[in-house]
């Protein structure tokens, strides 16, 4: 690990200030990715700005039509939230299945989104629900937020403050874990929303989270698992590694989509 300057601001403004004042700063949310990569020397920032004492970044608000979750809200808090469960139960399913108990007690939604690991769970919920990411500078629609593997359209120093998820008519999330790491080998989020059916796949795409057109089309016609019988997803742009070749991932996308739909329909 290389040396860096560590700061622990109390407000979002102080955090963005510290970031912009530094030569090459990184924010630290839950630290579940950042600390391992610092230890391995894969990230060598001059400054680490710790967000854990920034009070106004955590919390959950549920209104009639949306759930807003603060960026520093821990996965365990979302998983255990009765309010979230009442509004979008699939979100609690997703949060409750991230990593293990230790990761869920430290890891945060905002950290996961800013990192945009291609195998992380949260990006599929943001894209699948058509959520809006609120930063210290602006509001970013889900379809414009992600920008490929480990990349987002956040500007340098831009800080996620919260994400607002519109409450769908129904939604489901099904994950097939990597047998070793238990990250998503394929995770599929399906949602039937006022604006139509949205489906987002994590863990499988070479460019990170994406919307599979074939699955969305089939479910738009009929939001049932049976509607996906015979539907295939092209393997061309999917990842291949020792745990899953692209064709296996393509197959799993449809299987997991069916399970997510069943969950959304209260059948699984």
């Amino acid at each position: 690990m290389e040396e860096f300057t560590y700061t622990r601001p109390a407000t979002a403004d102080d955090a963005t200030g510290a970031h912009s004042a530094a030569e090459d700063a990184m924010y630290m949310a839950g630290g579940q990715t950042l600390i391992p990569v610092l230890k391995q020397g894969l990230a060598m920032p001059t400054d680490v700005v710790d967000l854990n004492r920034v009070g106004d970044l955590a919390g959950i608000q549920v209104t009639g039509d949306a759930v807003t979750i603060g960026a520093m809200t821990r996965h365990a808090v979302v998983a255990a939230s009765a309010e979230v469960k009442g509004a979008i139960p699939a979100l609690t399913v997703l949060a409750g299945g991230i990593g293990d108990a230790q990761v869920r007690n430290r890891g945060t939604m905002g950290g996961s989104l800013a990192n945009n690991d291609p195998s992380a769970d949260y990006p599929s919920a943001v894209l699948g629900l058509g959520a809006t990411v609120t930063t210290n500078q602006r509001e970013i629609p889900a379809d414009e937020f992600f920008d490929g593997m480990f990349a987002t359209n956040l500007e340098d120093g831009e800080l996620i403050k919260s994400v607002t998820y519109p409450i769908p008519e129904k939604a489901g999330y099904a994950k097939f874990p990597n047998p070793a790491s238990r990250y998503a080998l394929v995770g599929v989020f399906v949602a039937k929303t006022a604006g139509g059916v949205r489906v987002a796949v994590t863990g499988a795409g070479q460019d990170g989270v994406f919307r599979p057109a074939e699955v969305e089309a089939a479910l738009s016609a009929d939001f049932s698992a049976a509607a996906l019988d015979g539907v295939t997803v092209p393997a061309d742009d999917l990842m291949t590694d020792m745990h899953a070749a692209a064709d296996y991932r393509a197959h799993l996308i449809v299987v997991m989509a069916k399970r997510a739909v069943n969950q959304a329909n209260g059948q699984g």
Binding site: P179, A180, S181, Y183, M242, H243
Partner: peptide, 22 residues
């Protein structure tokens, strides 16, 4: 789950961590 895998061309260990060694 468990499988020690070496890259057959380079001899590098593919399963070098618990992320890949199940």
């Amino acid at each position: 789950l468990e499988d020690i895998v070496y890259d057959p061309d380079t001899g590098q260990l593919v399963t070098g961590s618990l992320m890949d060694y199940g």
